[in-house]
Design a protein around this nucleic acid. Sequence first.
DNA 1: CATGAATGAGGTTTCATTCAT
DNA 2: GATGAATGAAACCTCATTCAT
Lengths: 191, 191, 191, 191
Amino acid sequence: MRADARRNLDKILDAAADVIAERGVNAPMELIARRAGVGVGTLYRRFPDRGALIAAIGDHYVHSLAAALDSAVQGAPDAWTGLYDFVVWAGDPGRGALATALADVPEETFTDRAEFAGARREWLERLDELVRQAQAEGALRLDVGTDDIVALLGLFACHPAGLPAHIAARPERFLRLMLDGMRASAATPAD
Amino acid sequence: MRADARRNLDKILDAAADVIAERGVNAPMELIARRAGVGVGTLYRRFPDRGALIAAIGDHYVHSLAAALDSAVQGAPDAWTGLYDFVVWAGDPGRGALATALADVPEETFTDRAEFAGARREWLERLDELVRQAQAEGALRLDVGTDDIVALLGLFACHPAGLPAHIAARPERFLRLMLDGMRASAATPAD
Amino acid sequence: MRADARRNLDKILDAAADVIAERGVNAPMELIARRAGVGVGTLYRRFPDRGALIAAIGDHYVHSLAAALDSAVQGAPDAWTGLYDFVVWAGDPGRGALATALADVPEETFTDRAEFAGARREWLERLDELVRQAQAEGALRLDVGTDDIVALLGLFACHPAGLPAHIAARPERFLRLMLDGMRASAATPAD
Amino acid sequence: MRADARRNLDKILDAAADVIAERGVNAPMELIARRAGVGVGTLYRRFPDRGALIAAIGDHYVHSLAAALDSAVQGAPDAWTGLYDFVVWAGDPGRGALATALADVPEETFTDRAEFAGARREWLERLDELVRQAQAEGALRLDVGTDDIVALLGLFACHPAGLPAHIAARPERFLRLMLDGMRASAATPAD
DNA sequence: CATGAATGAGGTTTCATTCAT
DNA sequence: GATGAATGAAACCTCATTCAT
């Protein structure tokens, strides 16, 4: 029965992520339940309200970012390349819809959940480390911080109306443009 | 009652822009009406449905962009500076909320209105001209197009959750970073 | 100015009859006004409320019935034929929509207006006379009354969904069928 | 909760038939819900829109007509009498209000529902058979068809303002008058 | 436990009617 | 007088959430 329950929970999370990507954070709970193949009652038993459900999805999302960061780092010859690869992965339009929907959610929805906040902090620390390495390599501007990378990702992944066609077609091209501005060689005096 | 009506219409547009910036495109019509100090009926008399109201606001928004572009061009010593000034103006966080809300709206809402489409095209043409001049000056990468500028603005202005604090505090810093990536001197081979 | 006013009033009545035939007794007042080419204000000046407008239309309708009755009587060789011709005229599907709409209106709307009640009574008296003549001629059953003719007309003209196609195509055929049942020769003992 | 739901559904259908008979097809959904003792939500859960509700009522109505036809046929000595009895049953003023309201509904509301269309066709076939028998008996005119019977019923049952008092008091008298016109013995040359 | 029925608040839109110009 | 702008009540429908089965 434990396995069943777990399976149900996964079905709900998957369905919720899909539906929320399609219809936004305010998608009907009933639609999510139906998509997951359960009754609304079951949904509400697992997640006492919409906030809890959203937080669970956000949690899952952050964990996937962390995993992608690790994997990018391991597969890359140097920190800058790892950073670039990660940014491109995270910027994939396929992931954008969910990110956009989540971005719409009030901060507290997430930060009130200790476990989520922890996962997030941990991920940021690893990214920070990568940023420092890229700077040590002389590849990344010294006046650029982890915050800026996060901001770039946030902007790129979370465009409410979806990315313009020419960007969505070749997202890495645009991201390279933006990252080029962060290269040490591009440095321009900040006013 | 011509004057009264005109005054009311202005009040409605102002209120709608505010409310939509605060609560998104789906903000209650009644709230907009109340904020404008009129009854819902009046709102609906002027704008037969939500789409019409949104389109009117969008129209106003595009016109303000066009005006800002002109003014940036006239006040700048060269095309690159004009472009930079315009991007910074348009990226001002104070304008972002409305832009975000508008970005949420299906394309047709605007393109179905001929007058709006015209204003938009005209604005894009002027921006395009500026882009070419900046390239002729040798300041802007040749592999960057007007589309990319528009995309950058779109990303920057339209972040659903609002910009991160450190960006909002100094938006021009981040925009310069991004624009630096578009400078001729930053060119990196596009893969 | 008197002529103008009269013309306006006629335009309103015509427009109202049309609109009410199309959309029923609850058609928007504004639609009626626009169709008549006047403002709602003007409409309300002439007819303080919807009831007054409806009554005026009903009045007009009754007068047209009376005129048709006269004309049928004068053009027919005998009372039975006159009755038949009148019934066919009044049953013309083209007139049905308005009649249906009017039939929907509470009785008081009309009977409260003395002038209307008078016109109606007068018309009924003339019809009654015709009925008696047809009976005297031996053509009409003696157990049939003016009421029955009126009822037949009411049923026929006022079908909410419009007449079935095969009836509307040849209304006089069906009316003859019904009138045949009222012929003296068709008499069947009323149970 | 199966039993409860079923009970509620019945209450809704009963209430809807009553309310619609009283106030027409456009009666407020909320009124229907309240009359049934349920919330609007429940009403909409069962019938996604007004059309669905109306169709359900219409369906019930047609089935009751079919049952009445069978029962009239079985209780009558000959086809003509069966036809007469059925027409009188169906013309009962007590049933008229609902019929009137339903007649107001656009054809598609019903014909789009396969099951309803089937019930209707079946009923018409049985009526057609009865008509032919009555003609074979020499009682019914040969130039009268099933359509005409249906039309007579439609006219009689569906008078928007309700039947005139003298008809409502003795509906079978008037119907006999009309049916007399359809008797073989009443035949008059159709023009 | 899971289910899905029921509730009702909330948002949208329409129109009758009044009244300032 | 004529106009049409403004108002607000009323109807529609959708969903979040609770709870009986």
